[in-house]
Amino acid sequence: MHATLNSISMPFKYIVDWPIKFGRYIFTSLSANQALIEQNTNLQANNILLEAKLQKFIDLEKENKELRALLGSNPQPHERILAAQVLVIQAEPYLSQIVIDKGTKDGVYLNQPVIDAKGIVGQVIETDAYTSRVMLVTDSRNAVPVRVVRTGMHAITLGNGALGTLSLAHIPITLDIKEGDQLISSGLGQRYPNGYPVGVVKRVSRETDNDFAAVIVKPSAQLNHNRLVLLVWPKLAKLPESDKEKSNDESK
C-alpha cells in the first residue's frame, strides 16, 4: 500500500526537482568562465591532495590485511559504493529525511546505509523503482552503534529530531568521555558498515542527581546541504548459523 502511494507520488518529486536542477544548470552555464577555471584549478589541487592521501591509505590497507592474516582473523572486505543525487524537494521539517534519485532498479534495498564525504548520513527506509527515502541519523527513530575513537568504548547514538543533533544513550556519569571525542560506526547491529565517522561530541553534562550523563553529538555528515550522497553495499560479517535463524524468526 505504502509502496503504491510512493510510486504515485514519485513523478511529482521529479516535477519539482527538474526545473530547479535545470535552473542551476543554466546558471552554471552562464556563470563567468574565469570562475569555472578557478574552480577547476582548486578541484585539481584538491584531487592531488586526496590522491596523495590515498596512496598512504593503500599502503596501510595492505599492511592491515597482512597483519590480520597473521592474526588469523577475517580480512575486511571491500564495499561497493554508488553515488546518488539528492532530489531538491523538502518534506515536512519535523521529519528528518531526504529523497535520492536511485531506487530498486539500481539495487537499492531497505535499511541500506547511506554516507557522504564526511560521514554517515542515514539509512534507506522506503524505496520504489526510481527514488528512495533516506532517514537521517538525526531522526529520533534512528540509532547508530558507535565506538569512541579515543577510548574504544562502545555506545549508541540516538537522533534528536529537528534539533539536528544526536545524543548518546546510557552513558554512566563516571565514564571517560569529553568534548571533541570522535565517534565512528562500530558495525555492531549489522546495519551500518564499520569505521565511518558518525559525529563529534559537542557537550557533556554530568548532573549528580542523574545516573547517566547527557552527551550531545554533532553529526559529521553534512546532512542539510548535500547534493550528492553515497549508497553503500556493506559486506557485513556473517552471523553464526544459529543466530541467523533466530534473527530471521524475529523478523517474521
Binding site: 500500500m1 505504502h2 502511494l5 507520488s9 518534506a91 515536512e92 521529519l95 529525511q97
Partner: peptide, 12 residues
C-alpha cells in the same frame, strides 16, 4: 491526504 502521506513518507 493519502497522497500527501506518500509524498512526505509520513505514517500511512
Amino acid at each position: 491526504g493519502l497522497f500527501l502521506d506518500g509524498l512526505h513518507g509520513s505514517l500511512l
